[in-house]
Each structure stands twice: as C-alpha cells, then as structure tokens.
C-alpha cells in the first residue's frame, strides 16, 4: 500500500512535468517511477503518506496560510532593516526547545523558522534548535521558545503527531 502511494506521487509529478498523455510518455513514466521506487522507496519518510488523512490535510491548508502571512511580514521586516541608514540589527544565536518528535515535523519547523521574520535555523542537537536571530529580544530559553516556535508548533502538532 505504502509503495503504491509512492508510485502514485512520482507518477503525478511526472505527468505534471511532461503535460501530455501520449502513450510513449506514459510508458517511460511508468518505467522511471518503478525504477525510482525500487531504488529509493526505503528512505522515503513514512509521515509523508499520513498527510493524506482529511483532518491532517485541513490543518496543512491552515498552516499554509499562516506560513504565507509570516513570510510576507518577514520580507517587509528585512526590507526595513536593509534600507535604514543606521542598520538597526542586534544579532545573536539563541537556543529554543521543540516538542515535536517526528522527523518530517521537525524539518517543516526548521524550514518555516528560516523563512519567518528575522530568524534562521543554524543547527539542531537533540530537542534543541539553535537559531540565528537578527534582533535578539531576550537571552532566556523559555521566552524565546514562546516568541519563535510556539505558533508554528501548535499547528504542526496537529499535522504530524
């Protein structure tokens, strides 16, 4: 079942890329998808399949809009800092804690943090994320966790846990 879903995903991407229903294209697509599945099926994350549950999918759509809004805000934030003559930056690396356990949830969290206002993930060791912050507001771990991670984590918990 899991392998069939992988095959279906690869085939969909192939059809979108070629954008034709000629039988030669379809034949090559089936062969390539089977080959890729046999080679790489083991390292495909299991959580990738669980997203297709309707409730998780709904929260994924909600997450998309939250993420888009944060991303637009982050761009205006960076634009303000870059265009200001005095460069109002106050950078540093802070440490925050995450409650997520699944690999894919953590990947989404780290990538979202990188694309949101003034923060960028540098490394992850155990449960702790090290985040470069362009405008450090406090050196405290708990407070930074509240500010940076919490609003993403609430939604990501519902998608991946």
């Amino acid at each position: 079942m899991k392998r069939f879903i992988h095959f279906f995903i690869i085939m969909t991407v192939w059809l979108l890329l070629t954008w034709s229903l000629n039988w030669q294209e379809l034949l090559v697509g089936v062969l390539v998808a089977l080959f890729a599945e046999l080679l790489l099926g083991d390292i495909f994350p299991i959580e990738g399949v669980r997203i297709f549950h309707p409730r998780r999918f709904f929260w994924l759509i909600v997450y998309f809009w939250v993420f888009l809004w944060a991303m637009i805000r982050s761009n205006f934030d960076v634009a303000y800092r870059v265009l200001n003559i005095y460069l109002p930056i106050n950078p540093g690396i802070v440490k925050v804690r995450t409650k997520l356990t699944s690999d894919m949830g953590r990947t989404f969290l780290a990538n979202s943090i990188t694309l949101t206002p003034g923060t960028m993930t540098v490394d992850m060791i155990g449960d702790h994320l090290y985040i470069h912050w362009i405008n450090v507001q406090s050196p405290d771990i708990q407070k930074d966790t509240e500010i940076i991670v919490r609003h993403f984590e609430r939604i990501l918990e519902r998608i991946f846990e």
Partner: peptide, 10 residues
C-alpha cells in the same frame, strides 16, 4: 559572529 553580536549559545 559579527563583533556587535549579543550572544552565541551555539
């Protein structure tokens, strides 16, 4: 990090 940085936990 840049010399004006505040802290570096990493």
């Amino acid at each position: 990090l840049w010399k004006g940085s505040v802290l570096d936990r990493y």
